[in-house]
Amino acid sequence: IDAAQIVDEALEQGITLFVVNNRLQYETSRDSIPTELLNKWKQHKQELIDFLNQLD
Rank of each mutant, 00 (worst) to 15 (best):
Thr16Ser: 08
Asp56Arg: 04
Asn53Ile: 14
Leu37Phe: 07
Ile33Gly: 01
Gly14Pro: 00
Ile1Thr: 10
Arg23Gly: 10
Leu38Arg: 06
Glu12Gly: 12
Asp50Gln: 10
Phe51Ala: 02
His44Leu: 06
Thr28His: 06
Leu52Asp: 00
Thr35Gly: 11
Lys40Gln: 08
Ile15Val: 11
Glu9Lys: 03
Glu12Pro: 00
Ile33Met: 04
Arg30Trp: 06
Ile6Val: 07
Leu52Cys: 02
Gln54Glu: 10
Asp2Lys: 11
Asp31Pro: 13
Gln5Cys: 05
Asp2Leu: 12
His44Gly: 03
Arg30Thr: 06
Ser32Gly: 08
Glu12Ala: 12
Ile15Arg: 00
Glu27Thr: 15
Val20Trp: 10
Tyr26Gln: 02
Leu17Trp: 02
Trp41Lys: 00
Ala10Thr: 04
Gly14Asn: 05
Phe18Val: 13
Phe18Lys: 14
Gln25Lys: 10
Ile6Tyr: 05
Lys45Ser: 15
Glu47Met: 12
Phe51Pro: 00
Ser29Thr: 10
Leu38Ala: 06
Thr28Val: 05
Val20Asp: 09
Leu17Tyr: 01
Gln46Arg: 09
Glu36Tyr: 13
Ala10Val: 01
Asp31His: 06
Glu47Thr: 09
Ile1Pro: 09
Gln5Thr: 10
Pro34Ile: 03
Val20Cys: 13
Tyr26Trp: 15
Glu12Asp: 10
Leu24Thr: 00
Val7Glu: 01
Gly14Trp: 04
Lys40His: 06
Gln54Thr: 12
Phe18Gly: 06
Leu24Ser: 02
Glu9Val: 04
Leu38His: 05
Ser29Gly: 09
Lys40Pro: 01
Tyr26Met: 06
Asp50Lys: 09
Ala4Ile: 06
Pro34Arg: 03
Arg23Cys: 14
Glu9Met: 05
Asp50Met: 10
Tyr26Gly: 02
Gln25Asp: 08
Asn22Thr: 04
Val7Gly: 01
Asp31Gly: 07
Val20Met: 10
Asp2Glu: 10
Ile33Tyr: 03
Gln13Pro: 00
Leu17Cys: 03
Glu36Cys: 05
Leu52Arg: 00
Trp41Leu: 13
Leu37Met: 09
Ala10Cys: 04
Gly14Tyr: 03
Glu27Trp: 12
Asp8Glu: 14
Gln54Cys: 07
Leu37Asp: 02
Gln13Cys: 07
Leu38Lys: 08
Trp41Cys: 05
Asn21Phe: 06
Lys40Cys: 08
Val19Glu: 02
Ser32Cys: 08
Ala3Asn: 02
Ile15Asn: 01
Thr28Ser: 10
Asp50Asn: 12
His44Met: 07
Lys45Tyr: 15
Asn39His: 11
Asp50Glu: 11
Gly14Ile: 02
Asp50Phe: 10
Asp56Ala: 14
Leu55Pro: 09
His44Trp: 12
Arg23Trp: 09
Glu27Ala: 14
Asp2Met: 13
Asp50Val: 08
Leu11Glu: 08
Val19Gly: 01
Leu17Asn: 00
Ser29Met: 09
Gln5Gly: 12
Asn21Thr: 04
His44Lys: 04
Asn22Cys: 10
Asp50Ser: 11
Asp31Arg: 01
Gly14Cys: 05
Ser29Lys: 10
Tyr26Cys: 06
Gln25Ala: 11
Pro34Glu: 04
Ala10Glu: 01
Leu38Thr: 06
Val20Pro: 01
Ile1Asp: 07
Asn53Val: 10
Lys40Ile: 10
Trp41Tyr: 04
Arg23Glu: 15
Asn22Tyr: 05
Thr35Glu: 13
Ala10His: 01
Arg30Cys: 06
Asp56Cys: 09
Ile6Arg: 01
Lys42Ser: 14
Ile15Phe: 08
Phe51Ile: 03
Glu36Arg: 07
Thr35Cys: 08
Leu48Val: 06
Asp2Val: 15
Arg23Gln: 15
Gln43Asp: 12
Leu24Asn: 00
Ile33Asp: 02
Val19Thr: 07
Leu11Arg: 15
Thr35Lys: 13
Asp56Asn: 15
Ser32Val: 13
Lys40Gly: 03
Ile49Met: 06
Lys42Asn: 14
Arg23Lys: 15
Lys45Cys: 13
Asn22Glu: 07
Gln43Lys: 14
Gln13Tyr: 14
Lys42Leu: 14
Ser32Ile: 10
Gln46Tyr: 08
Asn22Arg: 04
Gln54Ser: 14
Ile6Leu: 13
Ile49Val: 09
Lys40Met: 10
Gln25Thr: 09
Leu55Thr: 12
Asn21Asp: 14
Gln54Lys: 14
Val20His: 13
Glu9Ser: 05
Gln46Asn: 09
Asn53Ala: 09
His44Gln: 04
Ala3Ser: 05
Ser32Leu: 08
Glu12Phe: 08
Ser32His: 12
Asn53Lys: 11
Val7Tyr: 15
Gly14Phe: 04
Ala4Arg: 12
Leu52Lys: 00
Asn39Ser: 08
Leu55Arg: 15
Glu12His: 10
Lys42Asp: 14
Ala4Lys: 15
Lys45Ala: 15
Gln5Phe: 11
Gln5Pro: 04
Gln54His: 12
Leu55Trp: 07
Glu47Ser: 08
Phe18Met: 11
Leu55Ser: 11
Leu24Asp: 00
Ile15Trp: 03
Asp31Met: 05
Leu48Ile: 15
Ala10Asp: 01
Thr35Met: 13
Pro34Thr: 05
Ala4Ser: 11
Asn22Met: 06
Gln46Cys: 07
Ile1Asn: 08
Ile33Glu: 02
Gln54Pro: 07
Gln5Asp: 10
Lys45Asp: 11
Leu55Lys: 14
Asp50Leu: 11
Gln43Trp: 07
Glu9Asn: 05
His44Pro: 00
Asn39Gly: 07
Asp8Ala: 15
Glu9Arg: 03
Ile6Gly: 00
Asp31Cys: 07
Asn21Cys: 07
Gln5Arg: 12
Thr28Arg: 03
Val19Trp: 02
Asn53Glu: 08
Ala3Asp: 01
His44Asp: 02
Glu47Gly: 06
Ile33Pro: 06
Lys45Pro: 03
Leu11Asn: 09
Asp56Phe: 11
Ile33Gln: 01
Arg23Asp: 15
Thr16Val: 14
Leu52Glu: 00
Asn39Asp: 15
Gln54Asn: 13
Glu47Pro: 06
Ile49Gly: 01
Val19Cys: 05
Ser32Lys: 08
Glu27Tyr: 13
Leu11Gly: 06
Val19Arg: 01
Trp41Arg: 00
Ile49Gln: 02
Asn22Asp: 11
Ser32Ala: 10
Asp2Gln: 11
Ile6Phe: 06
Tyr26Phe: 09
Gln43His: 10
Ile1Trp: 12
Leu55Gly: 11
Gln25Glu: 13
Ile15Lys: 00
Thr35Asp: 13
Phe51Cys: 02
Thr35Ala: 12
Asp50His: 11
Glu9Gly: 03
Asp31Ala: 06
Leu24Lys: 00
Glu47Ala: 13
Val7Asn: 03
Gln54Leu: 11
Val20Ala: 11
Glu27Ser: 13
Ser32Asn: 10
Leu48Glu: 00
Ile15Ala: 03
Glu36Gly: 08
Leu11Pro: 02
Leu55Met: 13
Lys45Gln: 15
Leu52Ile: 08
Leu52Asn: 00
Val7Met: 05
Pro34Ala: 05
Gln25Ser: 09
Ala10Asn: 01
Thr16Lys: 15
Ile15Ser: 01
Lys45Thr: 14
Leu17Ser: 02
Ile15Glu: 00
Asn21Tyr: 05
Phe51Tyr: 14
Pro34Leu: 02
Thr28Leu: 04
Ile6Ala: 04
Thr28Glu: 03
Gln43Tyr: 08
Glu9Ala: 04
Glu12Ser: 14
Trp41Ala: 03
Val20Thr: 11
Gln46Thr: 09
Gln46Met: 08
Leu38Gln: 06
Gln25Cys: 14
Asp56Trp: 09
Thr28Tyr: 05
Leu37His: 02
Asp56Tyr: 10
Glu47Arg: 07
Gln5Ala: 13
Ser29Asn: 12
Trp41Thr: 03
Gln25Trp: 13
Leu48Ser: 00
Ser32Glu: 12
Glu27Gln: 13
Ile33Ser: 01
Tyr26Val: 06
Asn22Ser: 06
Asp2Pro: 09
Ser29Trp: 10
Gly14Asp: 04
Asn53Asp: 06
Lys42Gln: 14
Leu24Cys: 03
Asn21His: 08
Ile1Arg: 07
Phe18Pro: 01
Glu27Gly: 07
Leu17Arg: 00
Lys45Trp: 15
Ile49Ala: 02
Leu37Arg: 01
